[in-house]
Design a protein around this nucleic acid. Structure first.
Lengths: 145, 145
DNA sequence: TATTGTTATACTCTATAACTATA
DNA sequence: TATAGTTATAGAGTATAACAATA
């Protein structure tokens, strides 16, 4: 987490330190974007997942990597705020389906917009070409391309 | 947070999405690295700060961006585990200085090592040149160079 | 009066274990 | 028996407000 490695420029942080710092910056931007709407990061992720899905509680646990009991509380709080809604599954009477409300969709869009603005500010010192290169590298790491 | 912008390659995520995903990946790596030692991310950050500093509670709040009451609890739990220690300040009798114990330093090193390994795994599909470019870009964003 | 730190309190988030109701 | 979801409970992490000690 400290000694410079192979291809580093003299003044660069190690890849490990640079990625750690970058991740904290981005998470901070996300917190900034959500805090104004009294949302947490996990609530925002929930809204993002529900944007184009209507999963069961169980599937939600899979998406978020959380225990089912955690999902219960998470959805409880979001439902209390009118952001999501529970409906009985028609196929399995044990199951519950979760969907986003208009209000939830609206808030999600506002947060996403603010997050974009914060990222734009953060990457402000990069050129367009550098931003594109960064997007390419980050995409390759995330495995989506 | 969705429509592709200027210099994107066809299959790349938007810069915003790519950075968000990358940050979750890196934070996940950090959680993996800390979980084996029953530490949280914030506790690990605390150890990292104390690695070469002996701040007051107040200064610690500045480093971590937390309220002083949160610092009290954070240091309480770390002290209970023998990772840090409180000592009275000699200059200001209201102030408390926080330092890391040998045990805390040891645990911090283990976590850092595991984190490095996780990052190495995550960036495994990049070439050395790409890793260097990524470190450069991330460093420039973080403002440390 | 202002500042440092703690305490009391409250809420979110997370997990484990026990439970209910289906399947 | 196994699975879906909830409840009870516990602990970490965070904040606000009130307080004691010191500056």
């Amino acid at each position: 987490m400290t000694p410079p490695t192979d291809g580093d420029q003299a003044s660069d942080l190690s890849l490990v330190d640079a990625l750690a710092q970058l991740s904290f910056l981005v998470q901070g931007a996300l917190i900034d974007a959500t805090a104004g709407h009294d949302l947490s990061i996990i609530q925002t992720r929930l809204l993002g997942i529900l944007r184009d899905r209507e999963p069961t509680m169980n599937e939600l646990g899979g998406y978020l990597g959380l225990d089912k009991s955690s999902i219960t509380g998470l959805v409880d709080r979001a439902e209390r705020r009118g952001l999501v809604r529970r409906t009985a599954s028609t196929r399995d009477r044990r199951a519950v389906q979760v969907s986003i409300t208009d209000e939830g969709r609206h808030v999600g869009e506002l947060v996403a917009l603010k997050f974009e603005q914060r990222i734009a500010a953060i990457t402000g010192r990069l050129t367009n070409a550098e931003r594109a290169r960064l997007a390419t590298l980050a995409t390759r790491i995330s495995g989506s391309a």
